[in-house]
Design a protein around this nucleic acid. Structure first.
Length: 172
DNA sequence: AAAGTGATCATG
DNA sequence: ATGATCACTTTG
């Protein structure tokens, strides 16, 4: 197991979204307990030109974090109750991110954050250096299926049709 | 099928 | 200040 480094995160979101399948999301709580879960579903959001991406309307207080260099967390509240975890990717000033949609045992973006006790308090956390939130890999690259992203009816038809959701096929 | 829940952003 | 919208989950 090795922790992912900034080089792993500074690639484009589609590449990182695929690479994160099979990697292990790790969360250390205040009491020292470490929770770990393998990532099984991801989605890529690719810059201002992607009408599904939160950054497609440009930089706002919320999307500012997406313009940081790849390797930090973008976490926001959806529908007033679900914390959504994203991994910012790409170089600085390029607003791309990977939404973690599911981990083994907690499938669904709101469920995994609940299971791993991840909230907006961890927005902007640095996955490369943090002792509270990081990602490890054992090098496994599971086979996966690609499909359209979920819940983006507000995006252009073209962007809705892009197959930027990735689901691991193997059961760990 | 529809509620539940509150942050966010564009509008005024 | 107001209101529409929302990268969802659960319940019926």
């Amino acid at each position: 197991m090795r922790r992912l480094t900034e080089e792993d995160y500074r690639l484009d979101a589609v590449t990182v979204a695929k690479a994160l399948l099979g990697a292990v999301l790790c969360r250390r709580l205040d009491d020292g307990t470490v929770l770990r879960a393998r990532i099984v579903e991801t989605e890529a959001y690719c810059g201002e030109e992607d009408t599904a991406c939160h950054a497609h309307k440009g930089r706002t207080p919320r999307t500012d974090v997406m313009y940081s260099p790849g390797g930090c967390a973008y976490i926001y509240l959806c529908y007033g109750m679900h914390e959504m975890l994203n991994v910012v990717t790409g170089p600085a000033e390029r607003p791309e991110a990977v939404l973690i949609r599911g981990v083994e045992g907690a499938e669904g973006p709101g469920r995994l954050t609940k299971a791993l006790r991840i909230t907006r308090a961890l927005n902007r956390e640095d996955f490369v250096a943090s002792d509270r939130l990081w990602i490890e890999t054992d090098g496994s690259r599971p086979k996966f299926r690609s499909g359209p992203r979920i819940g983006i009816g507000y995006a252009s038809k073209r962007d809705q049709s892009r197959k930027w959701r990735f689901t691991a096929l193997v059961n760990y």
